[in-house]
Design a binder for these strands. Structure first.
Lengths: 264, 264
DNA sequence: CGTGTTATTGACCAACATCAAACTTAGTGG
DNA sequence: CCACTAAGTTTGATGTTGGTCAATAACACG
């Protein structure tokens, strides 16, 4: 296991754009009223920057604040005896990866920045109060937790019943759509925000095998990649190779959008 | 894939004991007030009986009621192309396995009775209204969803990073504690409510391999079993073999209780 | 007693892990 | 601008876990 990367944390003040990204995440299910939006913009939001690979929260912590991803790409993970790691989920700007800490402590997993990231922190007390006061916000948060669980179930299916090629193709589709939803994925070559080793840790595979399967996918003309930069050459076939159906992400229009972007 | 079993449904009226089991589930986190308990006892609860292996809800359904397990052992599952099945979770009496359908439809997975079961159904509208009216109930439901997600994460770790022996030992521990929490597991031999094939479908293994590993566990003196009946001979070693830590189940005192029961 | 489901066994094989080394790339400081 | 370094990627050789297929045995139930 590699040493924990330095976390040079430059605390800073929340900007209006930060609240906007958070709101976009909360409103992905249904729009909020002007009042609710104002209530959220009024919450205290402590912002902290994290370097690539820095830990944001650690297994065992009992945080008194909830995290909101503002920039970058973040994952939850679990460490087990002797160097094994399982990545549990990926999160893009606007998402709140540790809502469960509102009720269940201590944290049974860590939260880590895969790319350089900025994360906001809201006190639990303020969120609890808001949930009691603003039913529509409570609903949005409930929905966010449920979507998170839906993604976890899809991963469960993948780890249990799909082979390496399917898993990798599936995850590329998922990440592409999630990044696309916040405007971070250019269809003609976007950057995968993780290494092959991290990909393996998410999919229950060794990095060696991930590498070999990626080469197959390139050879078959489904993707092209050089370093981290990845280009989806054939969305339809990649989707088929991964047995991918975007419904579980519950992104409005996600798959249609991808199809439109990728087949001009 | 076997044909869907007949579902001979004997609709019946909810008994006080049914509400009691449901309440016990909701109160596993924190007790409710007398008012809240009454509010729940006042909800309409349609009760239906299901035979072993009968489907309760199907993938693609958009139910207008939420299910409450009242008796028996139930699982969520996902079917994929050509006979593959992945079981996503197990549920014991008191649990509500499809809370996500309150916000996310259609259902991306089915719900099925592994043993003969009785299930209650509450209209979504009634639940939504109660959530708005009774904050403590809303909190209890939120907690239930979060515990469900916590279990899913643990399964994710197992499927991704544990080998067959660990997975099987782990699941036996889990099921024993869950059954014990509702008084359905006798320490000296309780009935595993599923076949070896179903165990494999939950753990991403073939039934053949499940069988072989179970024999190993018996040979090593961790368990004894004859047919479905299973006897945990050595809780400490079984726990170690499965790398099992009960915290993720969020059952109050679960592990201590098991230890006490099993080592007199 | 049949009949269907579940458990068990054996032979064989594919997918994927592990280990170790070489090669690439990007970043860093002189 | 160039060596130097560390991280990540690629390759090859080899071994293990667990899957598949197919047949048999043990039950459970009407």
């Amino acid at each position: 296991m590699k040493p924990v990367a330095e976390c040079f944390s430059i605390d800073s003040v929340a900007r209006p754009r930060d609240y906007a990204r958070w709101l976009a995440g909360l409103e992905s299910g249904a729009p909020l009223s002007a009042d609710d939006r104002e209530a959220i913009a009024g919450l205290p939001l402590r912002v902290q920057a994290f370097a690539e690979k820095a830990d944001i929260l650690r297994q065992g912590d009992a945080p008194r604040e909830c995290a909101v991803v503002l920039d970058g790409f973040v994952c939850r993970y679990r460490l087990l005896g002797l160097g094994q790691r399982q990545i549990l989920s990926f999160h893009t700007p606007g998402q709140m990866p540790d809502l469960q800490a509102l009720h269940l402590t201590p944290l049974d997993h860590g939260l880590s920045a895969l790319s350089a990231a900025r994360v906001g922190f809201v006190p639990h007390a303020a969120l609890h109060e808001l949930i009691a006061r603003a039913p529509a916000v409570a609903t949005a948060l409930r929905r966010e937790v449920l979507v998170d669980a839906s993604v976890a179930r899809e991963w469960l299916v993948g780890l249990g019943r799909r082979d390496a090629r399917q898993r990798i193709a599936h995850l590329i589709c998922e990440v592409f759509l999630k990044l696309g939803a916040t405007g971070d994925a250019d269809p003609d070559g976007f950057d995968l925000p993780f290494t092959q080793l991290e990909l393996g840790d998410a999919l229950g595979l060794s990095s060696v095998h991930v590498n070999r399967v990626l080469q197959d996918l390139r050879r078959d003309g489904l993707i092209a990649s050089r370093g981290r930069n990845l280009d989806i050459c054939d969305w339809a076939r990649l989707r088929a190779a991964g047995d991918f159906d975007a419904a579980y992400l519950h992104l409005p229009e996600a798959d249609d959008a991808a199809k439109a972007q990728l087949s001009p």
